[in-house]
């Protein structure tokens, strides 16, 4: 399971603060940042690519999709950070399934609206894409069906010890830790420490599934859903 930070609501941050957050999280060993939302998140991923080398950016899109422009932005951001970009599509983005599908097809080099998108992403990662909500927090997690490999779960840092094990029962591929709004990232423990907290029990260790070699995906779920 990948340990990351998020959601990071970047529209509340200055560009310099976005860059600083990325540097801080990478130094703490976090493997991804879940950025919200949409255009701001795409820009933040671009900004972060200029100051980081390893950390992945999951871009949350939760508004109406502009198939061509979103695909172009995602493709370029993914080139900028050499395949470290992923997409998390929220319910609003999925309202028009045709637009979402067109964007994803464009990212794979298909002709959309009579044009082909270049450059194609080197390794577009889609950790979560399903009909079920993809940004489920732990409050609703137990009642959500369909969470499976590829799911992104989110958990407040304060709930880590009590509920981290519960997250593992759903075997998410990625866990995003967040701090209360307005709290400085300086209060954040290292990713290694978070992992220790989650795997506090032997039962949790037994529950974990093998981590795929290539981290977050792309998942079979996505492939099946859109027939890629």
């Amino acid at each position: 399971m990948k340990i990351g930070y998020g959601p990071l609501d970047v529209d509340l941050l200055d560009g310099n603060e976005v860059a600083l957050a990325a540097v801080t999280l990478e130094a703490l060993g976090y493997e991804f940042i879940f950025l919200t939302s949409a255009t701001d998140a795409l820009m933040a991923a671009g900004i972060m690519s200029g100051v980081t080398s390893d950390i992945r950016c999951l871009v949350g899109i939760n508004r109406e999709i502009d198939a061509v422009r979103d695909a172009e932005d995602l493709a370029v951001v993914d080139q900028l950070n050499n395949g470290r970009t992923g997409i998390v599509l929220g319910p609003k983005a999925l309202v028009d399934g045709n637009s979402a599908e067109a964007m994803l097809r464009a990212l794979r080099g298909a002709v959309v609206n009579g044009v082909r998108i270049f450059p194609k992403p080197a390794q577009m990662i889609i950790p979560v894409f399903a009909e079920n909500p993809v940004t489920a927090d732990l409050e609703t997690l137990p009642v959500i069906e369909g969470l499976q490999d590829g799911a992104l779960c989110m958990l407040g840092l304060g709930d880590l010890r009590d509920r981290g094990e519960q997250v593992l029962e759903y075997a998410p591929l990625a866990l995003a830790i967040s701090l209360p709004l307005g709290t400085s990232l300086e209060a954040l423990p290292s990713a290694a420490r978070v992992r220790e907290e989650v795997y506090v029990s032997e039962r949790a260790k037994r529950t974990e599934r093998p981590i795929p070699d290539e981290g977050l995906g792309p998942s079979d779920l996505t492939s099946d859903f859109y027939g890629f």
Binding site: N16, A19, M43, G46, I47, S49, G50, D73, L80
Partner: peptide
């Protein structure tokens, strides 16, 4: 996004 990357 590229401008953002270079500015950062």
């Amino acid at each position: 996004p590229v401008a953002g990357s270079i500015l950062a």
